[in-house]
């Protein structure tokens, strides 16, 4: 046993030495990387680590942090009914908008790809614009407004479907579907662009070869040629879709109000917003952030391993 451990450490030492020698030769690499690395570690990684540390404390910014062990997590899971509601909502949102937004992005990109050039340019713009249009989603609060001046209400009333206006954004049953629609509307973002660009890059010769080998319709072509070629973009798009699906926060806050009726539009991130920015319970908010992040990484691992099997 001891000889094994000794050997292991000797090997580690040797490897480190080799790496160190190599690092010394590649000094300029570190010089090039340094400015970015310092900023990146300071403003992206360090906050994440601090957040994990504070999740084990009671911290309200005014008093020094007090270590409370795993209490925040226990409270979160066992005692916080609103958090359970938030989790349910977030999962509902993530399960619907994540995969659906992802698949729709791909489908639209795929269909757009075969259009003539100028229509394609226009179509990409139409699909991509909502996700970069700042807070244009606020326009949905007029479309779904609860009184008769709301666009949807007035249409439905004119058609005689309903007699009295529906309070779309304050009735718990309707809030979630509205938010799902708006989130889907905004889901054609960077991942979608990546798909459009990736599809343009698929080698035409492979399609020609496909015709010869007897690929009959567009679905076979999609499965046997397009998807395997698009795998890297699909992996990238998955990361983007997860980020988007779990990070829903602005839309429910702008549309359903904050806090929303009966917490119907409460997501994990709005819950975090509540504890972090309204109640200043930083320890508790950090615990929420850490949980969310772990779930996101697990999801990502799961999807990446699933996507590797596509088309093979």
């Amino acid at each position: 046993m001891t000889t094994f451990v000794k050997k292991y450490f000797a090997l580690r030492k040797r490897n480190t030495l080799i790496a160190w020698e190599k690092a010394k030769q590649m000094k300029f690499c570190y010089a090039f990387l340094a400015p970015y690395a310092v900023l990146f570690l300071a403003f992206y990684i360090l906050p994440m680590l601090t957040s994990i540390y504070y999740s084990f404390t009671y911290y309200n910014i005014l008093e020094p942090a007090k270590f409370v062990g795993a209490n925040n997590y226990i409270d979160l899971i066992l005692n916080d009914d609103v958090f359970l509601k938030a989790i349910t909502n977030t999962f509902q949102l993530a399960v619907i908008t994540g995969p659906l937004g992802y698949i729709l992005s791909f489908c639209f990109a795929w269909l757009i790809n075969e259009l003539p050039r100028w229509i394609r340019t226009l179509a990409v713009l139409v699909f991509y614009a909502p996700s970069i249009a700042g807070n244009a989603y606020a326009i949905f609060s007029i479309i779904f407004r609860g009184d008769a001046y709301g666009y949807l209400n007035s249409i439905l009333m004119n058609l005689g479907v309903i007699n009295t206006p529906i309070l779309w954004l304050t009735t718990p049953d309707y809030i979630m579907p509205v938010i799902i629609i708006v989130t889907l509307w905004m889901s054609m973002s960077t991942g979608f662009l990546s798909f459009v660009a990736g599809l343009q890059g698929v080698d035409r010769a492979q399609y020609e070869a496909g015709y010869v080998d007897g690929i009959r319709n567009r679905w076979q072509e999609l499965y046997y040629i397009t998807l395997p070629n698009m795998k890297p973009m699909l992996l990238f798009g998955a990361v983007m879709a997860i980020t988007q699906a779990f990070g829903v926060c602005d839309v429910p806050m702008a549309l359903a109000g904050y806090p929303s009726t009966d917490y119907a539009a409460r997501t994990v991130v709005t819950h975090l917003f509540d504890y972090g920015y309204t109640r200043f319970e930083m320890g508790y908010a950090s615990a929420i952030a850490t949980m969310l992040f772990i779930v996101m990484i697990l999801c990502n691992k799961l999807i990446q391993s699933a996507l590797r099997k596509v088309g093979t």
Binding site: M48, V239, I242, T243, G247, V269
Partner: peptide, 8 residues
Amino acid sequence: LMFNGYVT
């Protein structure tokens, strides 16, 4: 890439 602005 997955970090959300509010979380950090």
